[in-house]
Design a protein around this nucleic acid. Structure first.
Lengths: 344, 344
DNA sequence: GAGAATTCAGCAAGCGCTTTCCAACCTGCT
DNA sequence: AGCAGGTTGGAAAGCGCTTGCTGAATTCTC
C-alpha cells in the first residue's frame, strides 16, 4: 500500500487546454472529441481536432465516467490467468470488448472464495459495465459472493457467468454433457468396451456433467464404465488418480477418460512410469482440447471446446441489451487422435 | 459501438447517501472510508462504517480518480493473452498490483503495431499509474508508439518495458544471452558436437541473443553450429524451419536448438513426420520452459525463465519510487531432460 | 422584406469524490 | 479568568468531463 504520486510533473492536457488552444468553448471541444449526437460546424471541428492532435490530448476516462455516470470497462474474474484455459477465455472477452470500445480489467481469484468476494467488491468500485465471472469451473459460489453480485446488478451492472448462472446473472454455458456423450459414443464406436474415469471432486458441475455424459454415451454404445476416481482438475490430480486406478489392475485395451486434458496428461505420465504403453495398451482420452494435447505423444483424443468463442459470447451477453441464453450451450466437437487407436 | 446505459435503475449508493444515513457530513464520511490522514472520533467513525456496510457502499473509483488526480490502475499490454508465455507474465503483474491495491487493465496487441499504438492511446485515457509493455518479444517498437509513450510518461505516467527498454522506460530484462551460453555449454558438456539452430527472424532481440549465446557456449565447449535457420517464434515456424533443416540432411547425434519451446515442439513434430527419433537420433532443446515441454515425449531440454517473477518485477518497477534496473536481468536455469540424452 | 423556424456555440450546473480552510470546541497553563 | 495550542466536524471549492438550456445568428417562408 505505498503508491506515491509523481512529483510536480506537467499534467496531461485537459479538455479545457484543447478548447483554449482551439479558441472554442469546452462544450464544443467535448462535442467534437467525444462522440456526441450534436454536430459542430466544420470550421470549429477542424480547429478542435488540430488542437487535440497538437497537444496529444486523450480524454480522461475517469472524469468521463463520473460525468456520464457510466464507465467503459468490463471486469473479468478468472481463477488463474496463467492457465491457457482461462487465457483463451480472456482472449475472447478482450476481443468482444474491443469491438464495442470497452476496456478489460482483470482480476485473479486463485480459486480462493474469500479473495473472490474481495475482488468483486473492489471491481464494483470501477462501476464496470459488466462483470464476467470465469472464476471456477462451476462449483457453487460462496454466499458472500451472491450478495456482492446482487448489490452490483441491482445498481445497474450486468453479471455474466460462465457455466451455470447464479441468481440475476446471465450465463453462457458449454454443452459438457452433450460433448461427453458424443465422446463416449465415438470411443465405444471404435471398439472400446471397458473404461475407467478420472474425475474432479463431486459437486464440481462441469466434471459431474462430463462423467455423466461420458457414461451415458459409452454405455449406449455397448461399453461399461468400471470405476470413477475422484481427484481434481489438474495434471497432478490426474497423475494421482491414475496411480490409484492402476492399483486396481488394468487390463490391456482399457480406456481411461480424464475429465480434462490436464488430467489425461497426468494420467499418461503415470502410465509411462508404470511401463504401460499409452495407446496400444491403455487408451487415454481427455476433454478441453488444450494445445498441449496435440503435442504429447501419442497425441490426445479429446473434446474441443471453443474457449475463445465462449469468452466472446460472454462479452456479447454483457453488452447486448436483448440477449437470450445460448440455449443448449456452445457445441463441442470430438477430436479422435492416436491416444485411442481403433480397437480390433 | 452500441453500449446503452441501463434504464432507470436505482444507482449505487454514493458517499453522500452514506453520510446522510450516518448523520455526518460528506467530508467526515470520506475521511472514515477512504484512507485519510485525519482522524475521526470513534463515535462518528462507527456510525459511518455501519451506514456504509448497511448500504453496501463501495467508493466510485472513477470519481475518486478524478478528485485525486491519480487513478488506481496499472495497464498491461500483451501480444496474446491465450499464450501461456504472456499468461504467466500477466499473472505476476496481477500479483504485484494486488499487493499495492492496484487493479490491472489488460489489452491485447495481436502483435499488430498499429493496434498497439491505438491501444496505448486508449489506455492513456485511464491515466494509469503505469503502463507495462509485454507486447512483443523485443523487436523494435513502431515510431508512433514511442511518441505515445513519451506523451504518457511526460504527463507523469511510468512506462515499464519487458525486454530492452525504449526511451524513458524502465526495463525489466531476462538474461537471454547468459541462459543460452549455459545451455550451449551444458550440451557440449554431455557430448554434443554438431548443432543446428532454429531461430526467429533476424532483428528480434531475444532470438538474436539466444542464438548468439548458444553459439558462444556451445563453441566454447568444443561444439560447432552448422547452420541457423530463421523462421519465427511459434510452433508452426519451428515445424517449417525443421523441414528446411532436414532438407540439408542431418547426421544422427546432431542437436537441434529451437529458440523457444514452441519452436522446439514444432521441430519435434517435423522430425517424427520424417521418421527420425527424437533423443537417440536427433536431440532437441528449446528455451522458455513452458508446461508443454514437460509433457511431450521425450520431455524437452530447455532453459527455465521465471516469467511470473518477471511480471512481478515489472510491477515493482512500476510502483517503487526508487528502482534500479535489475542489472544483468533475471537469471535463467538450464533444465536437461530426455530430449538430449548424454552422448557417448 | 418581415416574421417564423432552424441551427449551433457557449454558459453553467452537476457527476461523486477529496481536501483546504474555517470555526467551534476542548484542553492545560499562568 | 483568560489565552495559546491542539483537535476535529463541516462548508465549499475544486478534479475533468457532459449536457440541458439559452439566445444570437442564420435560413426559410409567403
Amino acid at each position: 500500500m505505498a503508491v506515491q504520486p509523481q512529483p510536480g510533473l506537467p499534467a496531461a492536457p485537459t479538455l479545457l487546454d484543447v478548447a483554449a488552444a482551439a479558441g472554442v468553448s469546452q462544450a464544443t471541444a467535448s462535442r467534437v472529441l467525444n462522440g456526441s449526437t450534436r454536430k459542430v460546424a466544420v470550421a470549429y471541428r477542424d480547429r478542435v481536432l488540430a488542437a487535440a492532435e497538437e497537444l496529444g490530448y486523450t480524454a480522461n476516462l475517469s472524469a468521463q465516467a463520473t460525468a456520464r455516470g457510466t464507465s467503459s470497462v468490463i471486469a473479468l474474474l478468472v481463477a488463474d490467468i496463467a492457465d491457457p484455459y482461462f487465457g483463451q477465455i480472456a482472449s475472447g472477452v478482450a476481443r468482444g470488448a474491443d469491438e464495442v470500445g470497452l476496456v478489460v480489467t482483470i482480476a485473479i481469484t486463485e480459486r480462493d472464495h474469500d479473495r473472490e468476494v474481495r475482488l468483486v467488491r473492489t471491481l464494483r468500485g470501477l462501476r464496470p459495465h459488466a462483470l464476467i465471472l470465469a472464476a471456477s469451473r462451476g462449483s457453487d459460489p460462496a454466499p458472500g459472493l451472491l450478495q456482492e453480485l446482487e448489490a452490483f446488478s441491482s445498481a445497474g451492472g450486468r453479471v455474466v457467468a460462465l457455466g451455470p448462472g447464479a441468481g440475476e446473472a446471465r450465463a453462457v454455458t458449454v454443452d459438457n454433457h452433450g460433448g461427453a456423450v458424443a465422446l463416449g459414443g465415438a470411443l465405444a464406436g471404435i471398439g472400446y468396451r471397458r473404461a475407467v474415469v478420472l474425475a474432479a471432486s463431486l459437486g464440481v458441475h462441469s466434471s459431474d456433467d462430463r462423467v455423466a455424459g461420458f457414461t451415458e454415451g459409452f454405455t449406449a454404445g455397448g461399453g461399461e464404465v468400471l470405476r470413477v476416481h475422484h481427484a481434481g482438475y489438474n495434471r497432478e490430480s490426474g497423475h494421482r488418480a491414475m496411480r490409484a486406478a492402476l492399483a486396481f489392475g488394468l487390463e490391456p485395451g482399457t480406456l481411461v477418460f480424464g475429465v480434462s486434458d490436464m488430467v489425461a496428461v497426468g494420467a499418461m505420465a503415470a502410465l509411462r512410469e508404470a511401463d504401460r504403453a499409452v495407446g496400444p495398451d491403455i487408451a487415454v482420452a481427455g476433454f478441453d482440447d488444450t494445445p498441449t494435447g496435440r503435442d504429447v505423444s501419442p497425441p490426445l483424443t479429446t473434446v474441443h471446446i471453443p474457449l475463445e468463442e465462449l469468452g466472446y459470447q460472454a462479452t456479447r451477453a454483457a453488452v447486448d441489451h436483448d440477449w437470450r441464453h445460448v440455449a443448449a450451450g456452445l457445441e463441442l466437437d470430438v477430436v479422435l487422435r492416436a491416444s485411442t487407436p481403433p480397437l480390433g
